[in-house]
Computed example of a mutant assay.
Amino acid sequence: MEPGVARVEVTEACGTLTFPAEVDLGNGEAIYEQAAALLDSGVPALIIDLSHCAFCDSSGLNVITRSQVRATARGVPMWVVLPTRGIVRRISEVAGLQRRVAIAPDVATAREALVPYR
């Protein structure tokens, strides 16, 4: 994966956007553009995977929030995978991310949660 950009995987069931190790002002907008492109392509669901992200400032939270708004407007279910502990988890909790988006502990759980939407 190119440093600073998200890894994108598209399957029949969903698109998965895996955040890089760090998300900040320098790459947040480019990652949002990747998420928007996935949603605009017609994926049936979106998973945003932060499980390997070691640092995520408000730019990363902005990517998630804007992606959720776009997904909701298109009727696309979206799940966010958060690390079980660490600074990314803590920042997400302080920002109240769990009140706005569906959270899963890992990608497999998020994919299972999408089954009813197919």
Rank of each mutant, 00 (worst) to 15 (best):
F19R: 04
G26L: 09
D24K: 06
G60L: 10
I91N: 07
Q68A: 12
G86S: 03
T18D: 00
R85Y: 09
M1K: 03
D106A: 09
D57R: 08
V115Y: 09
A73F: 08
I91H: 05
I31N: 05
S58E: 11
A110M: 08
R90N: 11
E29T: 14
A102P: 00
G75T: 08
E12R: 11
L61W: 03
C56Y: 10
T65F: 07
V10P: 02
A35E: 00
S51N: 07
N27V: 00
D57G: 04
E29W: 07
A35Y: 00
T109D: 06
V80F: 09
R74G: 00
A37D: 05
G42Y: 09
G60I: 13
T65V: 15
A36T: 00
R66G: 05
A21S: 08
V10H: 07
E2N: 09
V10R: 13
V76M: 01
V107A: 13
D49K: 08
I47H: 04
G4W: 02
G26W: 05
P77E: 01
F19N: 04
S58N: 13
A102N: 14
G60T: 14
P105L: 12
R89T: 06
P20C: 07
A113W: 02
S58C: 15
C56D: 04
G86R: 10
L97M: 12
V115H: 10
V23K: 10
E93A: 09
V115G: 01
V69S: 11
R99L: 13
D49I: 02
A6Q: 02
C53K: 03
C14F: 11
G4L: 11
E29C: 05
Q98N: 14
E2R: 13
V94T: 14
A113N: 06
L50I: 06
G15Q: 04
P77Q: 06
T65P: 00
I64L: 12
D106H: 15
Q98A: 15
A113D: 02
A54Q: 14
E112K: 15
T84D: 12
E93M: 07
R74M: 13
R66P: 02
T18R: 12
L50T: 08
A110L: 06
